[in-house]
Write a protein that binds this DNA or RNA. Structure first.
Lengths: 247, 247
DNA sequence: CGGACTGTTGATCGGTATCAATGCTCGTGG
DNA sequence: CCACGAGCATTGATACCGATCAACAGTCCG
């Protein structure tokens, strides 16, 4: 076993500890090590969780990007949110009978796998972790509130500006981005499905942002060239993240 | 004190126990009685919680209807969801620093008030209730997933059919509706803001459903005249509610 | 080399917004 | 009791944002 592999299995060295995440107490880390069933690697494009199915596991993203989505029978698809380092996936399916949405990998992903059947122990014995789960669910709800406002009320141009700022803030918070850079593992079609517009129209809308000198998208990275003007276009309100827990 | 008033203060007689809600253990009821700060009446049209403000309380709806909403600076408003008997309001504000949305009463409301500062005791001592909180947050997330799919992908006609079915299912579950009836304490403008269309267009869209013989809206009640055809129009998938907890 | 996927651009169509006028109901005050 | 105004709903005319259909270019990869 290499040193790197060893580190991955020792929760006290969890890479998530580095960022703005809250620290766990020693007994919580001891429990998490039992709660954790292992790690899972998922190639880009693979489906982690499928709408309508039950899942024996829930996951914390250690690295890589994915997205949650939900489809209508006729193929129309809504991207509900993107997932990146530190995000919890599958809590819905652990709490209700089955998943109400699917999760797919955008890049190769590394996931920390937790056993659904031990979820109860969290509530029974670890108040901090129970709180963290509620906190995480409430945070996702906040993001959804924001997206719903966006899709319901903003124009295509505003929506796109909003989404780019949202993703860049989140990526920056977990150390995936610095300055005005945003890694872009998604295609224009993903953004279009997240914003409720067509891919064609997304392309045109992106052009407008480019021509206005607000963004640059090249070689898999977006740069937000003028954050203030972009925020003004988007009517952007940042997520208040403060002290963030994880599982 | 009248008998009715007495009953309201005794959590073991909580009116919510009547419906599909999960039963609490005696010690949980004892705690809830301490957790509960009292009851609050709110007249129709009043604002319970305001975006950007902090709230010392969270609330369970005992009776009446409200709605959660979020606005852009220029006045555009998105109705995020409706709230009725049994729904928990203000959890966001209890977990994050401040509310990210507002809550307003559609009818007079009666609310059970809980002290935010005692929320921690729930996690520290009552696993079932902690789980209930996470469950409730996850349920709200499910509803938001559904609404986002609706606003992002469905046409105005589909959205309206979907929302009416959604509300009727929820209302029926908590005993506010029977058969094909749905109490309609909201105006067309509320529905329009929930669906991301204008009130004018909502009126026209509703006409189409009326003329197709699918719905009837008179004297503050909507009747869903042909549930199957309505569900086909909406591509409706019901919420899986199963054993539902409350606080 | 060929094919799949992605992104771009043009032409046209259509769903929804906007603007405007009207009628209805209801509560209020003269 | 009636007049009035406010809020809500309806309907028509017109404008526009974004969808659709289509062609083509670039890149990647087997």
């Amino acid at each position: 076993m290499t040193a790197a592999e060893g580190a991955l299995e020792r929760c006290e060295l969890c890479p998530l500890r580095r960022f703005g995440f809250r620290r766990h107490a020693p007994e919580e880390i001891a429990f998490l090590r039992r709660f954790k069933r292992g790690e899972r690697h998922l190639p880009a494009g693979a489906t982690l969780l499928r709408e309508g199915e039950t899942s024996p596991d829930l996951y914390t993203v250690l690295s890589g990007w994915g997205f949650r989505h939900k489809a209508l029978e006729d193929g129309r698809r809504q991207v509900l949110n993107f997932a990146m380092t530190g995000d919890l996936l599958g809590l819905q399916g652990a709490i209700a009978r089955e998943m109400d949405h699917s999760v797919e990998a955008l890049t190769d992903m590394r996931l920390c796998v937790f056993a659904r059947e031990k979820l109860w122990e969290v509530f029974a014995e670890f108040p901090n972790l129970s709180f963290a789960l509620t906190w995480i669910a409430a945070r996702e709800e906040r993001m959804l509130d924001g997206h719903l406002l966006s899709v319901g009320q903003r124009t295509a141009l505003e929506r796109l500006a909003y989404l780019l700022l949202h993703l860049q803030d989140r990526a920056r918070f977990v150390g995936l981005a610095e300055g005005d850079v945003l890694p872009a593992p998604f295609t224009q079609a993903h953004l279009a499905d997240a914003l409720g517009i067509t891919a064609v129209h997304l392309s045109r809308t992106l052009q407008r942002l480019r021509r206005a000198g607000l963004v640059l998208w090249r070689d898999g990275t977006v740069r937000l060239l003028d954050r203030d003007r972009l925020a003004a276009v988007a009517k952007y309100e940042p997520l208040d993240l403060a002290e963030r827990p994880y599982v």
